[in-house]
Nucleic acid binder design. Structure first.
Length: 800
DNA sequence: GTTAGATTAATTTAGACAGCATGTC
DNA sequence: CTAAATTAATCTAAC
């Protein structure tokens, strides 16, 4: 189909596409147009990655906007949100306004209602619906990227429920859903009353194959000789073979450690193939990587990158990931060894893809479980860069002759599994039922069931029995914990329930937080193994309404516990532990030896924790309590300025993990603050301080300084040591002292003074004061070596 | 008694969304 | 219903 023949699109679009070198639509795109995407029709497109999904989305959104509407593009990852934003900003030259909204980033330039196209994560959309964002009703077109994720047990239900809500709020809404190739695309189409484009077409050829021995067996029956020399591994042989053809390779492995080890080994394979020019550029990138953070992970990565190899996993910080992705796209880095981060993440195509490990540890499966066909196909789909490579090849590695056949059967020739709704699970419904009632989508049990009829789950099952049972269990739970009231068949969210729903908390997290805080105020301190019934659910609040009531005061007398404790005495550790044991925080793994270590720690600091310690005989709960303590300790270390390298080593995590924990803690502490005032508990001040400290990673005395833009934990500490102890002093500070404290970096010093509001931030002609020491004496308590870091880079996590 | 090397046992294991309210002399 | 790659611990044999 010629781009000139597109019905319903803005008149500038054909020329714009031609400027991009697009004269003809790809076949699946043409099918989509024939099915009416540009004319407001619903559509499900189940097509391979890199076969032009983005253009289908753009055609739908642009034509909808041309008719005077507003479009929403839903993505599963924040990184994808910014990638799509960059794509769509091309249209700003035609007067379109693009907005982004995710948990940690909101695009500037005013209200989302003024935007023509908004990109957001599914959770953010859900949250906006819960908070009655008015522009939701103006939407005319919603595009969902990677809809096959409705199959995901944790996050799938959110997407499912959110789509159902959007469609219910606005029956005329055009719904376009983009999916990887899946087994049952027609089920999705039925659910969404949509036309279907289901195609395997790809713009460049993809050959799947299996390597074994000295040969690469391809799916078309042919074989390529691909010999393994001396001691090298199969993967190395494939990488070498690709390099000889001047191509790059993406290797998927099943653990972080494997990714790092493989990258280290493959560096030796790549090194001899680099030109001097490439070596020099790679050395620069390696330096940038070292500058991102001062940890072992960072060093290892830099070493590999200097040789043209890299690893990529969630333990890397954002900066690391971006440097690796960019260097790989620029073809400087020739091999990336990655965990699944790269399979689902941003677009990083490669000539060849190697799926080295096809089994991955899965606790719930009791060992190594084979990856799903869908997941392996997603990885393989990264092979072949449109316009750059003549073809793509995706290779599985077999270690025996039998395995060759098994891999062909299991993955090469296999169809992806059907997608199935995971909505009928209690944790998912706990959250979504509360939200559905709180935002008025349903006011009775029947209304609730009727609403749930509009989900994929309902369209995939015949008997509603299972769903009804779970709904009733959840309603009971929500009522018992005072999130919902049920009166004469009428459902109503309590004020607490409304707050919880708007804060986007799992009700169970909210219950844990409220109970913990209340427990502290009651001063119930005879905690050891005194917990009551060994039930999974947290203790119930009093049956009558309200929380701080006379009945509780009476309880105090009963227990003859300590007098009420001062909420200001709640320690940061106590609060970090409280939010860490919540289902919204994903826990750190307890390694061997950790158990004893944190049992000791628990013994010493039990008084600081909120709520009764579970008995050691309640295996699961006690373990959770300990691993929450480990997480809490990590957060406490961060908030006492312990060096990043020390933390990564002490807890066996990467710099990216610290960031993740800190971010989650920030969010949950913010929510805890709101909850505390909601239920009239007086802990807001203590919570707020703990939150700000973990946000900036500083001790109490630096909180003010670290609030200045451009000042993170390290610079704040240096300024403090130089005698500048707060923002006001910084504003009127002696420039020589500031410059010395910032290790003579003029530009940095100017920026800092400017954001502090200094009347004359210019550093021209200023010399660093000689008597200012700039050595960081890390915030260690002396139990481990505290090495001071050599560079001045900010490990502040708050850049966004 | 020491130590290099071999054998065995234990340990570890992917990823990542969300609140709120903005700032200045 | 299921594993594999490291790493730590232990053992062995030669000196």
């Amino acid at each position: 189909m010629d781009v000139a023949d597109l019905p319903g699109v803005p008149e500038w679009l054909p020329d714009h596409l031609r400027d991009d070198g697009i004269e003809e639509l790809y076949p699946p795109q043409a099918e989509a147009v024939e099915a009416g995407v540009t004319e407001g029709e619903n559509l499900v497109a189940s097509i391979p990655t890199a076969s032009g999904k983005t253009l289908i989305a753009e055609l739908a959104m642009l034509s909808s906007v041309a008719r005077g509407g507003t479009a929403l593009y839903i993505v599963p990852l924040r990184a994808l949100a910014s990638e799509k934003q960059a794509d769509f900003e091309e249209f700003e030259q035609y007067g379109l306004d693009i907005g982004v909204s995710t948990g940690n980033y909101e695009s500037e330039g005013g209200w989302l209602a003024d935007k023509d196209i908004v990109v957001a994560t599914s959770e953010k959309v859900d949250s906006l619906v819960r908070n009655d964002a008015p522009w939701i009703e103006d939407l005319t077109c919603v595009v969902t990227d990677e809809v096959h994720l409705v199959d995901d047990g944790e996050r799938g239900p959110t997407l499912e429920v959110t789509l159902a809500k959007l469609r219910r709020l606005n029956p005329d809404l055009q719904t376009v859903a983009l999916s990887a190739t899946i087994g049952n695309a027609e089920a999705l189409a039925t659910w969404l009353d949509a036309g279907l484009v289901d195609s395997d077409w790809r713009p460049i050829d993809l050959q799947k194959g299996v390597h074994y021995g000295q040969a690469l067996h391809l799916e078309d029956g042919s074989q390529q000789r691909l010999s393994v020399q001396n001691n090298e591994k199969q993967t190395a042989a494939i990488v070498r073979d690709t390099l000889e053809d001047d191509g790059s390779t993406l290797v998927f492995v099943n653990s972080r450690r494997n990714a790092e080890a493989a990258a280290g080994r493959l560096a030796n394979t790549v090194r001899p193939h680099l030109t001097d020019e490439e070596r020099a550029q790679l050395a620069d990138i390696a330096e940038e990587i070292r500058d991102v953070s001062d940890t072992e992970t960072s060093d290892d990565l830099a070493d590999a990158v200097a040789d043209g190899a890299a690893f990529h996993h969630a333990g890397l910080s954002r900066g690391h990931r971006e440097l690796v992705e960019d260097a790989f796209r620029d073809r400087l880095v020739k091999v990336v060894c990655a965990t699944p981060t790269l399979a689902a993440g941003v677009n990083t195509p490669s000539r060849r893809v190697v799926v080295r490990d096809w089994r991955r540890y899965d606790g719930s499966a009791g060992g190594m479980a084979p990856l799903s066909v869908l997941e392996v196909h997603q990885m393989m789909g990264r092979a072949g860069r449109p316009g750059l490579d003549p073809y793509g090849e995706a290779v599985l590695i077999a270690s025996s002759h039998d395995e060759v056949d098994e891999l062909f059967e299991r993955y090469v020739w296999a169809d992806p599994e059907p997608v199935r709704s995971k909505l009928a699970a209690e944790p998912a419904l706990r959250t979504h039922i509360l939200a559905t009632v709180a935002s008025g989508f349903a006011r009775s049990r029947e209304g609730l069931l009727e609403f749930l009829e509009q989900t994929l789950y309902a369209s995939q099952t015949d008997e509603g029995g299972q769903l009804e049972r779970v709904v009733d269990d959840v309603l009971t739970y929500l009522q018992r914990n005072d999130f919902l009231e049920i009166e004469g068949g009428e459902l109503d969210a309590t004020s607490l329930g409304h707050t919880v729903s708007r804060l986007y908390l799992d009700p169970m997290s909210a219950a844990e937080i409220v109970d913990g805080l209340r427990d502290w105020e009651r001063g119930a301190s005879d905690s050891t193994s005194a917990s009551g019934a060994p039930s999974e659910t947290p203790p119930e609040p009093p049956a009558d309404s309200g929380f701080t009531t006379a009945s509780e005061l009476a309880e105090d007398a009963d227990e003859s516990a300590d007098a009420d404790r001062d909420p200001d005495d709640i320690s940061a550790l106590g609060l970090y532990h409280l939010v860490s044991r919540t289902p919204d925080m994903y826990q750190l793994y307890l390694r061997s030896g950790d158990r004893e270590e944190y049992e000791m720690e628990l013994f010493e600091r039990e008084d600081e924790l909120l709520g009764p310690t579970p008995s050691e005989f309640e295996e699961g709960r006690f373990e959770d309590w300990l691993s929450a303590l480990k997480t809490a300790r990590l957060l406490e270390d961060w908030a006492t300025e312990v060096d990043e390298a020390t933390i990564t080593e002490r807890y066996g995590v990467g710099p990216g993990d610290i960031r993740g924990k800190v971010e989650t803690a920030q969010w949950l502490l913010g929510a805890a603050e709101s909850l505390a005032s909601e239920v009239d508990l007086d802990a807001a001040r203590a919570i707020s301080e703990a939150r700000i400290r973990v946000e900036h990673g500083v001790r109490e005395e630096l909180v003010d300084l670290a609030g200045v833009r451009g000042v993170g934990r390290k610079r704040a500490r240096r300024l403090f040591q130089a005698g500048i102890t707060d923002r006001a002093q910084l504003r009127d500070a002696d420039k020589a002292v500031v410059l010395a404290a910032l290790r003579g970096r003029r530009k940095t010093a100017e920026n800092v003074l400017e954001s502090a509001g200094h009347r004359d931030p210019s550093m021209e002609g200023v010399e660093p004061a000689p008597d200012v020491s700039v050595d960081l004496d890390d915030g260690e308590d002396g139990d481990t070596n505290a090495e001071s870091t050599a560079n001045d880079d900010q490990s502040s996590l708050g850049d966004f």
